[in-house]
């Protein structure tokens, strides 16, 4: 039965030790520990926040750069396109001009050839006339008179002309 009845000495000691411990712990031991716990939680929260901020910033910058790159690319494409058109035009111009010149040259050449041919023709006429008179004189063995000359010349010219026309 006596195990259930509290004893006075024990009650006093228990009370005193509890009060002593309470004062000591709440003044000396708990504040540093709770401060450390709170500090650590605060620091973790802070660094998490900062990491989040940095991440958002980085994403924003990335977006910006991406837009800039896209713009630059379209710009470059446009410039290239322009350059190509200009080159295309220039090429066409040059080709056209070259063709023109070539045609002009050809025309001039043809003219020259025609002129040469005419000159050659008249020269030929002269020599053919002389030759034919000489040959005819020889063959015929007679001296031709002037009028026979003229008649022979006209006849040979007509024949050469008809040959020429062929």
């Amino acid at each position: 039965m006596e195990a259930i009845i509290p004893k006075v000495p024990e009650v006093l000691v228990a009370l005193a030790s509890f009060v002593v411990l309470f004062v000591l712990l709440s003044k000396l031991a708990f504040p540093p520990v709770t401060k450390m716990l709170d500090e650590r939680a605060e620091k973790i929260r802070e660094s998490l926040e900062k990491a989040e901020e940095t991440r958002v910033e980085a994403e924003r910058l990335l977006e910006e750069y991406r837009v800039q790159m896209a713009e630059a690319r379209t710009e470059a494409a446009k410039v290239i396109e322009q350059g190509r058109t200009v080159a295309e035009n220039m090429k066409n111009e040059i080709v056209a001009k070259a063709r023109e010149e070539a045609d002009a040259e050809k025309a001039k050449a043809i003219e020259a050839i025609q002129a040469e041919k005419a000159a050659a023709m008249s020269e030929l006429q002269a020599s053919v006339a002389d030759l034919s008179v000489a040959v005819a004189g020889k063959i015929i063995g007679q001296k031709l008179t002037a009028s026979d000359h003229a008649a022979l010349i006209e006849r040979s010219i007509a024949e050469v002309g008809s040959l020429n026309e062929n």
């Binding site: 004893k7 000495p9 024990e10 000691v13 228990a14 030790s17 411990l21 712990l25 000396l28 031991a29």
Partner: peptide
């Protein structure tokens, strides 16, 4: 009427232990 009992002895030892630990 005050005396140290066997239980109180160990109570005080535990008190000292707690204080030292902290």
């Amino acid at each position: 009427t005050f005396t140290l009992t066997n239980y109180t002895f160990f109570l005080l030892i535990a008190l000292a232990l707690t204080i030292v630990f902290f």
